[in-house]
C-alpha cells in the first residue's frame, strides 16, 4: 500500500514559462520561499533541494525529463532522521496546456503505508503551488505561510 497525494492547480501561463519557473533556481527561489532545485536535469543526474542559506533539505536523482511537460525525481529527506529512514519517494510534476490555462499536477508517492515523509511534504506543497501560480499570473509570489 502506497502513501501518496495528487495536487492540481490551474495557472494562466504557458508550459514553457511554468517549466522555467520550476527548473531555473533563480526563478524557483522567488516562489518557493528561498528554496531551489539544484541539478543539471539530465536523467540520472543528482538532484538536491537547497535553501537560500545553502542548507540541503532533500536529495535524490532525476528519473525522467521531458521539457516543458514532465519531470520525475527520486526524493529523500536529509534533515529529519525519521523521514530519511523512510528512504526514497517519487515526485512527478506534469504540465498540460488546457485552453488558456496550464494544468499543473504534482504527485508525490512512496511505497509504504502512513508515510511521515508524505505527511510532511503534503503540508508544504499547497503553499508552494499557490505561490507559483501567483508569481506566474501577477508577477508576485505569496509571502511565506508563517502567520496562517
Amino acid at each position: 500500500m502506497n502513501s501518496n497525494f495528487v495536487y492540481v492547480t490551474y495557472i494562466r501561463t504557458t508550459p514553457e514559462k511554468a517549466w522555467e519557473a520550476l527548473t531555473k533556481p533563480e526563478f524557483t527561489r522567488q516562489f518557493w520561499f528561498g528554496i531551489a532545485q539544484e541539478t543539471t536535469w539530465q536523467p540520472g543526474a543528482e538532484w538536491k533541494l537547497v535553501g537560500s542559506e545553502g542548507k540541503v533539505y532533500d536529495t535524490g536523482e532525476v528519473l525522467e525529463r521531458e521539457p516543458p511537460h514532465r519531470y520525475v525525481v527520486k526524493w529523500r529527506n536529509e534533515f529529519r532522521p525519521e523521514l530519511k529512514d523512510e528512504g526514497y519517494s517519487r515526485c512527478t510534476m506534469e504540465l498540460v496546456q488546457e485552453g488558456e490555462l496550464v494544468k499543473l499536477t504534482c504527485t508525490h508517492t512512496i511505497e509504504r503505508e502512513n508515510s511521515k515523509l508524505i505527511g510532511a511534504v503534503s503540508g508544504g506543497w499547497p503553499a508552494v503551488l499557490s505561490s507559483l501560480k501567483s508569481l506566474l499570473e501577477t508577477g508576485k509570489p505569496l509571502p511565506r505561510p508563517t502567520t496562517c
Binding site: N4, F5, V6, Y7, V8, T9, W125, P126, A127, L129, S130, K133, L142, P143, P145, T147, C148
Partner: peptide
C-alpha cells in the same frame, strides 16, 4: 484524491491577509 490547493488559495486571500 483531495486537492487542498484551492482551499489554500482561499486561506491566503481571505484569512492570512487579514491576520497579517
Amino acid at each position: 484524491y483531495i486537492n487542498p490547493v484551492p482551499i489554500h488559495e482561499i486561506a491566503e486571500r481571505w484569512i492570512c491577509k487579514f491576520e497579517r
